[in-house]
Design a binder for these strands. Sequence first.
DNA 1: CCCTGATTCGC
DNA 2: GCGAATCAGG
Length: 160
Amino acid sequence: MDWTTEAIERLKALWAEGHSTAEIGRRMGISKNAVVGKAHRLNLSARPSPIRRDAMPRPAPAPRAPRPAPVPMQRLVQPTAIRQAPPPAPPPQASAAPVVRSFPSARPRIGARSCCWPIGEPGTQGFRFCGADPMAGKPYCTEHAALAYVKPRDRREDAA
DNA sequence: CCCTGATTCGC
DNA sequence: GCGAATCAGG
């Protein structure tokens, strides 16, 4: 691109009209990179940028905890809080029961509420829910409720 | 995936 | 100085 005075003036004009860099580039037959590059060099860049590179040096590294296995609600539920707060919502699959449907023989009264502790890998063959009689007012049977409701201090180390 | 503008860096 | 490549947010 030969940045003649006219070209620069046209760039400034289009820029002032509020066109996007890509649009200006289209009108002038150049790339938007050329436009934004030149605009930046001309110090006429002052348009609302979608991003900001300066602020927030390192906010959240987004801790990727690879945990494909089903880990049912075994946190944040304090023994004293269980009374007041409703039990953790069961996995939506429990009520929808598309998976369990393929196990008619192993289905113990889905509609009538049963232990929804996942058994196996969700989405894979053989996955099912426990299905045993749940504890009163809880989505899990006694066995799995013991696993689900863990005191916070018992699991403090895997918090971070 | 599309859009946006900003920055980098080899030329 | 230039702008493609790349980045980064919507």
